[in-house]
């Protein structure tokens, strides 16, 4: 019985490790500047975790294989209450590994969260509501029009409560697709009208809750063009699974042209871009680094 269990533990270990290393499944290809650092930290961590997991399971399997009782009532196990020296070494080594990993694991976070977006970043306001993403662009003038919850009227397509009387609002655009430029810093301001949502684009390596009552800012730089699925990652109700949109990452000049269009043409152009860009990274588009 013991040998069978030992072998089973080893087989389960091999199977588990195989799922991670067979090359078929991994993170989707990154599109953001912090992507490579994220992927490196993830890989290092998975390797450390994988080695620890394998070592522990192999050890467990070995003990189970090796130390089974023969059924002889006279036999005795080793009489030992432990070994402090081993205990201290083991504890020290794990503590060191975990703390180092833990500190390394703050880098990408700090880069994204402890700095403001650079001045002149491209700004988009994200307004989430049950099962729909609204993206509010400032238009040509670069200034967002005033919004007010009292002015929200979904039936008249004023999803974000834009005040038409405000001069800054004249050229603003509101659509349900996120368009952003590649190679420029981007700052999203996240707001929710009703419950908590979460903006998630897998290729972006970024999740951020969208919380009613707060205007949360997130910033990042994109390095690749393409169209990417944008999902809600915080349970928001009945049709949570369908709260889908796209993020289209465009060359900066295309984005500028887009932003200059009035609402109706903006909307039409977005529809056209969705057709132009199949889902995924556009082949052969990568800027080395984002510039300001």
């Amino acid at each position: 019985m013991g040998r069978a269990l030992g072998v089973l533990i080893w087989l389960l270990t091999i199977g588990s490790v195989w799922l991670f290393v067979n090359g078929r499944w991994w993170l989707p290809e990154y599109i953001s500047e912090h992507g490579p650092a994220y992927d490196r930290q993830f890989l290092i961590t998975i390797i450390v975790v994988g080695i620890s997991f394998t070592a522990a399971q192999v050890g467990l399997g070995w003990a189970v294989w090796r130390y089974g009782s023969s059924g002889n009532r006279q036999e005795r196990a080793v009489y030992s209450h432990g070994n402090n020296r081993l205990e201290i070494i083991w504890t020290g080594v794990t503590a060191l590994i975990f703390i180092v990993l833990g500190l390394m694991g703050q880098r990408v976070w700090a880069q994204l969260h402890l700095n403001e977006a650079p001045a002149g970043a491209t700004k988009v306001h994200v307004v989430a509501q049950q099962f729909q993403w609204n993206f509010h662009y400032p238009g040509k003038d670069g200034a967002f029009g005033r919004t007010d919850p009292k002015l929200v009227k979904d039936s008249e397509l004023n999803f974000v409560g834009l005040d038409e009387a405000d001069a800054n609002a004249k050229d603003d655009q509101v659509v349900t697709t996120l368009a952003v430029p590649v190679g420029r810093p981007i700052e999203l301001t996240l707001q929710s009208k009703d419950v908590t949502h979460d903006i998630f684009v897998p290729e972006l390596r970024y999740k951020q809750d969208v919380v009613p009552g707060l205007a949360i800012k997130m910033h990042f730089n994109l390095t690749k063009e393409g169209r990417f699925e944008l999902a809600c990652a915080e349970l928001c109700g009945q049709l949570h699974y369908k709260m889908k949109s796209y993020m289209i990452a465009l060359p900066a000049n295309v984005y500028d042209e887009l932003l200059a269009l009035p609402q109706a043409q903006f909307q039409a152009r977005i529809t056209q871009l969705i057709k132009e860009y199949p889902i995924g990274i556009k082949q052969g588009t990568q800027t080395a680094t984002a510039s300001q």
Partner: peptide, 22 residues
């Protein structure tokens, strides 16, 4: 071991950026 050890992955703020709520 199998379940606990991935806490080392999820406990990192940076890695949670992608893995959270998944």
């Amino acid at each position: 071991v199998a379940g606990g050890i991935t806490g080392v992955v999820l406990g990192q703020t940076s890695l949670d950026l992608f893995l959270h709520d998944g």
